[in-house]
Amino acid sequence: MSIPEDYRFTKEHEWVQLDSDQIATVGISDFAQRALGDITYVQLPKEGEEIKKDDPFGVVESVKAVSDLYSPVTGRVVEVNQPLLQAPELVNEDPYHDGWMIKVEVKDPTDVDELMNPTDYVSYVEEDI
């Protein structure tokens, strides 16, 4: 699955895309959704909630495991992907687009700078996992 060039990745396999209005969209990687297997439930924060970089902001549950979602950025949640709550399988089907999880108004855009670009992430997954 091709990864959009401007996506950045955490070591915990979340992706983040920052747009020009400092709004970050967050989801999990294709690798992560494949490792988890069929996703049955996604628990997300409420709109307006403050979240912190590297802190858990939600939970993703699959037939195999339940895992925390770690935030790649600090900021305020401005939008939650409501369809995921009814159709968590969207994360499996399209992790980089329809399967997005939250949009965050970012406090410090440099949060994203320390994350991996798609090339680095692919080699991270291939080497380390």
């Binding site: 439930y41 858990p56 939970v59 549950e61 339940v66 925390d68």
Partner: peptide
């Protein structure tokens, strides 16, 4: 059971 202690531990 994913709500429960033996899986979710302190959460």
């Amino acid at each position: 059971s994913t709500r429960e202690q033996h899986i979710r531990r302190e959460k």
